[in-house]
């Protein structure tokens, strides 16, 4: 065994709790390919209810920029009339305690341009982005809606993963009440 023995490439995972809320970065998994990454993401991040969708993206496909770092020149992307563009997904961390949330898409000829465009067109002046991520849309592998039942359904039935399933608190209360009664009777 050597240090080089691979742990497989890293994929960032984005999860959508319900259909009416945006995807959010929840962490990462290691996998040899995108299909296994999607499955691993499901097993790691969907062990409890509330998941409507999962995306996985190779970590190396994401370009990151901190909001505190000024962008070079701060100019909007010119793009160029003949440069080909592609869709980039944009994620923003807006809250100190929050994580990267899906904001939208931009068309750009490169990740660097995509970042510039995202920050100029998708930012919220009242709550400026703290950290920005962009990745090519083609690098994203998504769970399909028709798989939702088998991907996300099983977590709903496993009530024993919730603390409320256990009777420890009520059992302790009953035992304490019994002890108090015994003490009261003993002192009579």
């Amino acid at each position: 065994m050597t240090v080089d023995d691979t742990q497989w490439p890293r994929f960032q995972v984005f999860k959508q709790d319900r259909l009416d809320v945006p995807f959010e970065n929840v962490g990462s998994v290691h996998a040899p390919d995108a299909e296994m990454a999607l499955q691993n993401a499901r097993d790691v991040f969907v062990r409890r209810p509330d998941c409507a969708g999962l995306w996985v993206v190779p970590a190396e496909a994401i370009l990151e920029e901190s909001g505190r770092v000024p962008t070079a020149g701060g100019e909007e992307s010119q793009g160029g009339g003949t440069a080909s563009t592609e869709a980039f997904l944009v994620f923003v961390k807006q809250d100190q305690s929050g994580t990267h949330i899906y904001r939208g898409q931009v068309e750009a000829p490169s990740p660097t341009h995509a970042l510039i465009l995202a920050r100029s067109s998708l930012d919220d002046p009242d709550r400026p982005g703290i950290v920005w991520w962009v990745c090519p849309a083609r690098a994203v592998v998504r769970s399909e809606p028709d798989e939702a039942e088998s991907m996300f359904g099983p977590a709903r039935g496993k009530l024993y993963r919730q603390p409320g399933y256990y009777r420890a608190d009520s059992m302790m209360r009953a035992i304490k009440a019994r002890r108090r009664r015994e003490q009261d009777e003993a002192s009579e």
């Binding site: 290691h30 296994m36 499955q39 691993n40 097993d43 790691v44 062990r47 039935g157 496993k158």
Partner: peptide, 18 residues
Amino acid sequence: PILEEDIAFTNIALDEMG
């Protein structure tokens, strides 16, 4: 063989027990 399979295969074991 890898951490991700510790989770995935244990999940299958859990489902089958269910």
